[in-house]
Design a protein around this nucleic acid. Sequence first.
DNA 1: GGAATGACATTTA
DNA 2: CTAAATGCCATTC
Length: 105
Amino acid sequence: MKINNFNQRCLEKLHLIPKGMVSTYFELANSLNSKAFRAVGNAMANNPNPISAPCHRIVRSDGTLGGYSLGVKKKIKLLKEEGISIQNNKILNFKSKIFKFNSTS
DNA sequence: GGAATGACATTTA
DNA sequence: CTAAATGCCATTC
């Protein structure tokens, strides 16, 4: 098995997300200089370490939660604990809580 | 090497 | 606004 560059990359980025903030698959892939937001989701889905990586801070571009290996329910709870308000499986003030990575090369 | 899948995104009806 | 269809990228079978 070769090194999971993509997967590892995503996990590293997750660590950059400050508490109380969330990010989208799109932004995450964008930070990787890729448009593989699909592959990003796959990387999380395979989730080698769902504990070491705050994958619960990753949501869809629409502000919806999307999914979670441990269960969407858990994701909501975690985000709420982080200080993020969620309702109807959607993040409130999502635009204000979205976090963008350093796109500056 | 090829087909199939997915925690997605965007557009059109 | 909701639903359906299409496109995209990487990984897995």
